[in-house]
């Protein structure tokens, strides 16, 4: 008798767990598309901003390609930094 009771309580717990996970997955499905879109544009935007700043500084100081190239690379780096930052944020949220 004790065995059956044990199994039934365990079954209930497992069912609850499945339900919980289902709710979680349904909730995160839509937002995960959002985060995917977010990360992809973050990478591009930093590159654009970096190269624009480089270009403007170049026309100020008359050092045509050098600063554009430097700031392009810095822009790429900061784009990756943005992606890493938001990935870390997602990981933090998942652990919660």
């Amino acid at each position: 008798m004790k065995n059956i009771k044990d199994i039934s309580t365990r079954l209930e717990i497992a069912k609850k767990k499945i339900k919980k996970n289902q709710i979680k997955n349904n909730g995160s499905n839509v937002t995960s598309i959002g985060t995917a879109l977010k990360i992809s544009t973050e990478l591009v935007a930093a590159v654009v901003v970096g190269s624009t700043i480089g270009f403007i500084l170049d026309s100020w100081f008359d050092t045509k390609p050098i600063l554009t190239i430097c700031f392009f690379i810095i822009g790429v780096v900061s784009g990756f930094l943005n992606v890493i930052k938001s990935a870390k944020k997602i990981q933090k949220n998942l652990k919660k």
Binding site: A45, F71, G79, L81, N82
Partner: peptide, 11 residues
Amino acid sequence: EIISYLSRPVS
């Protein structure tokens, strides 16, 4: 960090 901050409105 400054470039990554400035890239916010663009993105």
